[in-house]
């Protein structure tokens, strides 16, 4: 397995959010402040690595007829661990992410990687795949958060910087509240994916020219 290729797949060519369009629920729902986005991204990355490693290690033991059920139980176990840890050590984050932490169980990214990668590859490659896919997911989340937070509440780094208030960039009263509401989620993701498709197309056509 080629590490550099895996890295590129996770971040660009097979980015879970921007290309594979998986795990939309959490991407749209919780990207209202930088703190939420980072917290969710890191939680998902940890769960993705752990479940990928365990599923890869057990791939010869689990009978293929009941593999999906087994994967879900493994994933649910790790999600519960992360959920309890967050409630114990980061209660603020646990509260603002709410029901979307237990809902990581049905996040298609994790089950998708288990089925598409971990069930066919070795432990180390699977761990790396989990890490890179997780980073790709986190980067997309953070990008969404920065845009929506700036336009919706006029701040940067809410929940993290400046004592949790975030650094104010647009004066109060001006930001468009709709951007941190559901509407803003759909619109922002639409524009981010469009921008990404535009970038990828240019990148490809440049590569083609280079080959010529």
């Amino acid at each position: 397995m080629n590490v550099k290729k895996q890295f590129e797949e996770g971040l660009l060519t097979k980015n879970p959010v921007l290309v594979q369009l998986l795990g939309m629920c959490s991407v749209l729902a919780i990207t209202t402040s930088l703190f939420n986005g980072l917290g969710m991204g890191i939680s998902v990355t940890i769960i993705l690595i752990c479940s990928n490693v365990l599923i890869s290690a057990l791939r010869k033991v689990i009978p293929s007829q009941i593999r999906i059920a087994s994967y879900i139980v493994i994933i649910a176990g790790f999600v519960t661990i992360v959920d309890l840890l967050l409630q114990a050590f980061l209660p603020d984050l646990a509260e603002s992410l709410g029901v979307f932490i237990p809902l990581i169980v049905v996040n298609c990214i994790i089950l998708g990687r288990a089925e598409a990668f971990a069930s066919k590859n070795g432990v180390i490659a699977s761990a790396l795949d989990g890490l890179f896919q997780g980073i790709g997911y986190t980067v997309a989340l953070v990008a969404m958060c920065v845009i929506r937070e700036l336009l919706g509440s006029g701040t940067f780094g809410g929940g993290l910087l400046n004592g949790g208030e975030g650094i104010r960039i647009i004066p109060e009263g001006y930001p468009a509240m709709q951007m941190i509401m559901p509407v803003g989620g759909f619109l922002t993701l639409g524009f981010v994916v469009a921008g990404f498709q535009y970038y990828m197309r240019r990148r490809q056509s440049k590569k083609k020219e280079g080959v010529k």
Binding site: P182, F186, G190, F191, A194, Q197, Y198, R201
Partner: peptide, 23 residues
């Protein structure tokens, strides 16, 4: 619609407008 918006992005934006209506 513009090339870059074809497929998923334009779908998301229509969903956003629907969500606006539900607001």
């Amino acid at each position: 619609c513009p090339e870059a918006f074809k497929g998923f992005p334009i779908t998301l934006i229509s969903a956003g407008l629907l969500a606006l209506a539900f607001m």
